[in-house]
Design a binder for these strands. Sequence first.
RNA 1: GCGGCCGUAGUCUAGCCUGGUCUAGGACUCAGGCCCUCCAAGCCUGAAGCGCGGGUUCAAAUCCCGCCGGCCGCACCA
Length: 507
Amino acid sequence: MKRDKHEKLMDLAKRRGFIWPSFELYGGVGGFYDFGPLGSVLKEKIIRKWREYYVIREGFFEIDSPSILPEEVLKASGHVDHFIDLMTECQKCGTPFRVVDVIKEVTGEDIEGMPREEVQKFMDEKHVRCPDCGGELGSIFEFNAMFRTMIGPGTKRIGYLRPETAQTIFIDFKRLHRYARGKIPFGIVQIGRGFRNEISPRQGIIRLREFTMAEAEVFFDPQDPHHPKFSNVAGKKIRLWLASDQEKGKTETMEIKAEQAVKNGIVCNELMAYYIVLTKHFLIDLGIPEGAIRFRQQTPGQRAHYSSETWDAEVLTERFGWVEVAGLAYRTDYDLRRHSEFSGEDLSVFLPEERRKVICHVIEPSYGIDRTFYCVLEHSFVQEGNRTYLKLKRELAPIEAGVFPLLNRDGLPEKAITVLESLRLKGFHVEYDESGSIGRRYARADEVGTPYCVTIDHQTLEDDTVTIRDRDTTAQVRVKIEELPKALNLLLREGAALQDVGVPMGL
RNA sequence: GCGGCCGUAGUCUAGCCUGGUCUAGGACUCAGGCCCUCCAAGCCUGAAGCGCGGGUUCAAAUCCCGCCGGCCGCACCA
């Protein structure tokens, strides 16, 4: 049986310390993954790049708040109503139903809000049966996509692990708005864990029960949905798959300039279009090919309860097809309005120049970091003949350079270690390897995407020069040891070409 | 959650049907060494495995049951 790319990649990921299933010692638990020594660093570097985009370039403010939320918050946000459902299943045909829906369908009565204990009785009394096949419905069970827990002793205070990081941003809105010195639009980001108790998590790291998300909430005046830098992206093309086309069964996407998409009313406003383009650039910057990126408009039935328009950034993968890595939702004023209502606190802002009050609207770009991580790995996985390597962007590679002695003798290992240590003192993430042949060491480094290898050979002992080898081309240049940090810095952080930092070596 | 298939070192796999020299074999990998003046060479040595639990049996990797996990399909993914 031929093993596909995904399987080979996952072998590599487990073997070389990127990711593996959690709790393996105890048989494993579905929906949880550990990030190993290299995976942690890669993930961190993806997050670092995300911050470059949203915190540095957009100038958004980052917060970091608890993962456990008290029940009131999620009642206000609508998650308690939309995430926790009483379910039943037809004993004959196996179709699962939301109890509220099936009762409404069969009896026409709306039992929303009825205490759980009475619902079963109600169903029995009304002899509710399967609307599809007439079969008997099984007993009611609770399907709770949020992890519930208790805050403090006793059972008085119910808490949930957050299903998204966004909520505390809305809750902190007044302080954050003041921090932003009252000007809108402004953006707040949060990077952290989210939790969803998936029924059957599958597809490895694509659907996790605990995952890392990076979310930005952009607050703006609904009468002025402009982005100050929109002109920078107005002419950029984006690939869209419209909801209306999906409903018609059409699989074709359309390519359109951001500006046009807003003008034609395809995308709701400038801000949304701006962040669609930004998301595309971010993904390309991570090494995802442009052709493997599209934006799918969610159909009304697929949208979250808080969203009036959602665009999913999808990346094409070999194994899973198009995978959603980010969702851009127009949350309107839903969250701030609900939190105003439930808390009694006025969360509107006053616009002094126009002398009016407004509840800010929100555009939310929300990224699944674990899925992005997978897509980055899959798209960097290269097999050429018997050579396998990760063509990771230099700035993402967990190990920045390998340092090897050409041979295991003549003082080369000792010299290599002094070079290694000097690079470490300069802040480079470098690793030493003297096991096996030089070719094997290069192969090992290539396999985890290490972009450069520094080799100490006999000439080093004579003139204090070393070679730097490029992962993708295997070409080498020779540089002086004292210029090595500068050379690596140019290569890793300034995007310099190999031949610009040293003397090419003919071999 | 339902149905089908599956679970042997770090990875891939032989063995399972037809229980017994299986003290579980191989390849790759990994560690130590030899050799070696640049791309997974070769040689020596070593580490490492039957998902978990129960049952049947004189005897279980092998047969049976339960659980856990994985893959595929349905549903779910707000």
